[in-house]
Write a protein that binds this DNA or RNA. Structure first.
Lengths: 194, 194
DNA sequence: CGCAACTTGGAGCGGACGCTCAAAGTTTGG
DNA sequence: CCAAACTTTGAGCGTCCGCTCCAAGTTGCG
């Protein structure tokens, strides 16, 4: 009743086109024209099915973000190494373009709150994931230390991923191998000399 | 001969305006109109003195990038902790807006080679700096390990800086304190399980 | 003073881009 | 077979932005 089958098929075609354009040409090339040309529809059809260009792009990116997340059901078996390996694979594998978009979004999020919110949410989920894995490895680790160290590791991975995207020959796997899996014993606070 | 004094003064005023706009409103607000309005000049004057808007912005950013670099003369005394503290201060201190712009630029550099080149250069300089400090601390450290670990630490700092800019309450100093100052003994290569 | 070199302002050009709208077409249910 | 519901099209609007152009102004020099 609400929508015809035809409309939903067009919607699917537009999403597919958006996914293709994003994957092949990146965020900055995903103009309305690029998307509608690829989907073979007019601008009007697009706006009959989506609130805005952003809405379609977000829908695709949201799919991509959750698709990357290794199964949220398996909660309880993955190790820190698994998570790091998954991150490395995401950045260096076939999803590399998507990874680049993620990093671009992080940059954009610095000044655009609408982009920042979902990025922050997905980051928080990842931190929890890493922290849990760390605590599984070392049951003595308290929540705060685990979360703090997870932030460090994820921060490092993000920074190293940017490096990887920019310098084609950078060895992300090797660099990631140098990351500390667990917090260092001491050094709880800042500790400048005085 | 080539240029009048008057022109040079206008040029300085434009650069100052560019600096102000960048500092107060960020990269995305630094439109030609914002800059020329602030400088109190017309667009024609601007283009009499600069090749393009980008040229003026780059001139300011180049200043800012080198200004951040703690004295390149002191080569030989700074420790890894000093360098990390300087980085933390850059991101959390009065230069925070500039730090945000740096991170934005890193995001832009992912897809714009013209931005990537200077960013990569300044990054390389920092890696050398960190690596040298690490070797000063531990004379047994070979060049490759030092450089590799410097990449890890800088990657982490960059990632954590992004986190800091986005989440106002994030404690960068504490997170930075958790970073490993020196490479771990083992783990020279990738070493996935088989 | 007069002339050439230089500087200035700002209207407006050109192009990109997201989005609207009304008219025309298609599908569905009765 | 008809009417209502739904879908499609694409020209074109509004806006933004970097940049050009040139007539009018100012400065420096002989």
């Amino acid at each position: 009743m609400a929508r015809y089958r035809v409309g939903m098929e067009t919607r699917a075609r537009i999403l597919e086109a958006t996914r293709d354009v994003l994957g092949e040409q990146g965020l900055e090339s995903a103009t309305l024209k690029a998307i509608t040309d690829r989907a073979g529809v007019g601008a009007g059809s697009f706006y009959n099915l989506f609130e805005s260009k952003e809405a379609a792009v977000w829908e695709v990116l949201a799919e991509a973000i959750t698709a990357v997340d290794p199964d949220p059901d398996g909660h309880g078996t993955e190790t820190v190494d698994d998570l790091i390996a998954a991150f490395v694979a995401f950045v260096t594998g076939e999803t590399a373009t998507l990874a680049r978009i993620h990093l671009q979004l992080a940059g954009i999020a610095l000044t655009e709150p609408e982009v920042a919110a979902p990025i922050a949410r997905s980051h928080a989920r990842r931190v929890e994931r890493f922290a849990a894995a760390m605590q599984r490895d070392d049951p003595d680790l308290d929540d705060a230390s685990a979360a703090g160290h997870a932030e460090v590791v994820l921060g490092a991975l993000t920074g190293l991923a940017m490096r990887t995207v920019m310098a084609h020959d950078f060895d992300l796997a090797a660099a990631a191998a140098g990351l500390p899996r667990h917090p260092r014993a001491a050094a709880p606070a800042v500790g400048q000399s005085s």
